[in-house]
Every structure is written in C-alpha cells, then in structure tokens.
C-alpha cells in the first residue's frame, strides 16, 4: 500500500481522534465524580485542600444547574462524537468538536479565574477536568487541521 500525503494526514486524524476520545472519557469520569459529590452521594477526596471550598461556593451551580452536571453532559457528548469519528473515519466531527471544546476551554478559563481570585481556593479535580478540556481542544485542533488538509488534497 502506497501512503499518499492524504493517507498520512487521514491516519493522523484517526490518531488525534483517539487521543480526543481518551481525554473525553477521563473528563466524563472526573465530572461524574464531582457531580456525585454535588448530589451528596459521594465524598470528595482531594490530594490538596480547596475542593470543598470551591464545590460549596455559589459558583458551583449555574442557573440552578450544577456546573459538574454540565461537564458530564459536555464531556459525554465529546466522547460519543470522538469515538464515532474513530470508528467511522469519514465522519466530519472535528470542526464541531473543536468548537465545543473551545467554548469549554473558555468556560474553564473563567472558572479558574473565579477559583484563583474570587473563591481563593483551588479544586484539584476541577484543575484535572480543565486539563482534559485543554487536551480535547489541542487534539481536536490538530484533527481539524489534518482533516482539512486531507480534504484539500482530494481536489
């Protein structure tokens, strides 16, 4: 099999989508953990102090919806899209995933600002969660770049 530049780019797209899938899955698990804590169903075990302060602050809910629940929904959506993209390579999911994770990343920038300067406590699992979103953003950006490169070479 001769690998054309287009094949190489497509191969990389699948690789980036695999990375996206892993980040989305980890993000879903962390958000789920924080949500269960919010519901009072699970204790929160954090390696550094601050989780409770952040999770008990007024900012842990948005219009009555726990932020962690929004995280579960967002990461689950990203996971399903990324996994679908891995299994069905022709699916064009990269632009949508990149847009959603960009929005997600902006939300995390805002929440990190709140943690550092308003609540003045850092929640370990929230930081882990934001790193997962950063991973989503980086790899979906790479996937978008390589998939549009592959698309351009068809013409």
């Amino acid at each position: 099999m001769t690998a054309t530049p287009r094949d190489a780019a497509l191969g990389r797209v699948v690789l980036w989508r695999m990375a996206m899938t892993v980040f989305a899955l980890l993000g879903t698990l962390v958000a789920l953990y924080l949500w269960l804590y919010h519901l009072g169903l699970s204790p929160l075990v954090c390696p550094i102090a601050g989780c409770e302060k952040v999770q008990k602050s007024e900012f842990s809910s948005l219009l009555g919806i726990p932020v962690a629940a929004i995280g579960v929904v967002a990461f689950t959506g990203l996971f399903i899209s990324s996994l679908a993209g891995v299994l069905i390579n022709q699916l064009r999911i990269d632009r949508a995933v990149f847009l959603v994770s960009s929005l997600g990343l902006l939300a995390y920038v805002w929440f990190t600002y709140l943690e550092l300067f308003v609540i003045r406590a850092i929640c370990f699992w929230c930081v882990v969660s934001s790193l997962m979103m950063l991973g989503m953003w980086v790899f979906s950006g790479l996937a978008l770049k390589d998939s549009s490169r592959a698309a351009n070479q068809i013409r």
Binding site: M18, T21, V22, L25, L26, L29, L32, Y33, L36, L41, S42, P43, V45, L83, V86, L87
Partner: peptide
C-alpha cells in the same frame, strides 16, 4: 488496532467507575 483501542477505553471506563464506587 481498533480492538486494542476499544479495550483500552473499556479498561479506563471500568477503572474510573470502580474508583468512584470504591470511594463511596
């Protein structure tokens, strides 16, 4: 490759859910 990848995902999911249940 696809099967290995799916297996890795399953291991991560099971481990994660297991840890959450164990902490409860």
């Amino acid at each position: 490759t696809r099967n290995v990848f799916l297996l890795v995902l399953a291991v991560i999911a099971v481990t994660g859910v297991g840890l959450i249940v164990a902490s409860q």
